[in-house]
Computed example of a mutant assay.
Amino acid sequence: MDETTPPELFNPLQRFGQDIKRVRLGRKLTQKHLGTATGYTDAYICMVESGKQKASEKFAKGCDVAFGTNGLFEGLLRRIDEGEHPSWFVPYLKLERKASKILTYETNLVAGIVQTEDYARTVFRVSNPRASAEGIEDKVAARLRRREVFERDSPPLLWVILHEACLRTVIGGAEVMAGQLDYLRTVAASPHVELQVVPFSAGIPATSTMPFIVLRFPNSPTVLYTETRVGARMHDSEQTVDAALDDYDRLRARALSPDGSLTLIKTLLKEYRA
């Protein structure tokens, strides 16, 4: 990004950074001045203004104090986090950021939290055929930001179960699929992630054929998230959540082991690269 880049080609973080820079220059402040006022280094501010670093909530609040903008940048940052997601997904997103365990089962598409940029872009283009290029890029950036939960001091345990159909449904062509499967290999190597694949050979799933996610928390009730074409629901009744956890246990039992799942992923990766 440079000064000649049209604003419509900026992603949300770049637009936020340009707004910070515009107001800072309007107030005749250097990056060092702003850094002193907010408690951040001028190098950090340079990264934020260039769109290479997502601003922290503390920094956004500090800018509002330094500029006298009365919560403007704090609000902009919040809208970056939530604005590119459907309104019915935002409540789930807030809970996902607080979860200690995320258990997800997918039947047709790779789970959103572990999608690559190219894979996500293709999914959004297909599901939003009338969206502008800028709108698609905003959605992609918002999806990739979900990975930030793993940057916490105590990241959640993510357990991903994918039906083999997720790996064989070609999204964006062989090159995109190869990149996605290669990323799944990287993800699976993390100590905070368990990845299993339910193979076609396992037959009809022993449980629901619909995707679902279970969120667990240290000191709050477990929540079940389900989604349809017209919206989503979160369930916290003990009976409903317990049934979903039983289903998840059955899926784990029918799935390949983590090592066996990686072997299948590597085999398919070779096919896509060929």
Score class of each variant (00 low, 15 high):
Leu76Gln: 13
Leu72Gln: 12
Gly68Glu: 04
Gly51Ile: 09
Gln53Cys: 10
Thr69Leu: 03
Lys52Trp: 10
Phe59Thr: 09
Thr69Ile: 10
Gln53Asn: 10
Leu72Glu: 12
Asp64Val: 05
Tyr44Glu: 04
Gln53Asp: 09
Lys54Trp: 11
Phe67Gly: 03
Val65Gly: 06
Gly68Arg: 02
Ser56His: 13
Ser56Glu: 06
Gln53Ser: 08
Gly75Asn: 14
Gly71Arg: 04
Lys54Arg: 15
Lys54Asp: 10
Ala55Phe: 05
Ser50Met: 10
Asp64Met: 02
Gly68Pro: 04
Asn70Tyr: 03
Gly71His: 04
Gln53Trp: 09
Cys63Ser: 06
Thr69Gly: 03
Ala60Pro: 02
Tyr44Arg: 06
Gly71Thr: 12
Phe59Arg: 01
Gln53Tyr: 10
Asn70Met: 12
Asn70His: 11
Cys63Asp: 01
Gly62Glu: 03
Asn70Ala: 14
Gly68Met: 00
Ala66Asp: 08
Lys52Arg: 15
Ala43Pro: 04
Thr69Ala: 07
Gly62Ala: 05
Val48Gln: 01
Lys61Ser: 10
Asn70Thr: 14
Ala60Thr: 01
Gly68Ile: 00
Gly68Cys: 02
Gly71Lys: 05
Ile45Ala: 00
Ser50Asp: 06
Lys58Asn: 11
Thr69His: 07
Phe59Ile: 13
Phe67Asn: 01
Asp42Ser: 15
Lys61Met: 08
Gly75Val: 14
Gly68Gln: 03
Phe67Gln: 03
Ala43Phe: 07
Asp64Pro: 11
Leu76Cys: 10
Thr41Ser: 12
Met47Thr: 15
Gly71Asn: 08
Cys46Glu: 11
Cys63Met: 09
Glu49Phe: 01
Ala60Cys: 09
Val65Phe: 07
Phe73Asp: 00
Glu74Pro: 05
Val48Tyr: 00
Glu74Ser: 15
Leu72Met: 15
Asn70Ile: 12
Glu49His: 03
